[in-house]
Amino acid sequence: MVQVMFYVMSFVTLGSAFIVAAGKNLVRSIFMFFITLFGLAGLYVLALADFVAVTQVVIYVGGILVLILFAFMLSGKQALAALDQQKSKFISLKNFPAFILAGLFLVVMLNIILKANAPGLQWIQDAKSGHNIIPVNESMVNNIGINLMTRYLLPFEVISVLLMLALVGAAHLARKEEKV
């Protein structure tokens, strides 16, 4: 059952990512990206990371995609017209080099992954024998909260300051320039 769910989720994720890559229409590819992100959230749940899945839905789907849609709407009619001219078949001569690059990269990465044999790594075997593995019927939210306030307190604070700086910087960059 879980395995079937995993295959369905990974099929949805990879398929919609393909449509994002192949789509001619920018709005359609943005909305297909929604589906990719939801599929990824499902994969996170299957990897027993429920909190990360919820955060993914809230921040990515709720925040980033709305932001991208807004920027797209603000960038006006000419951008849309320029998009229509761009006839991009998925495998055309123009993006043949990109296709070759991505394909060869995929071959290399698959090779490495299959050779690395991740489930047989030493620390993973140790975690399995030492019961340091997340059980299926236990929620990790409690543990994440405690860890965030003790072990990872410094990165947490640093990232909050950085987030504020980034948002102020974005607002500063996006403002209308006054006439000099």
Binding site: T13, A17, V20, A21, A98, F99, L101, L106
Partner: peptide
């Protein structure tokens, strides 16, 4: 790895 390569393809090939 599949997702990463699709992302790489998008970055190299898109004009937007």
């Amino acid at each position: 790895a599949g997702l990463f390569c699709i992302g790489l393809f998008i970055i190299v090939s898109k004009k937007n």
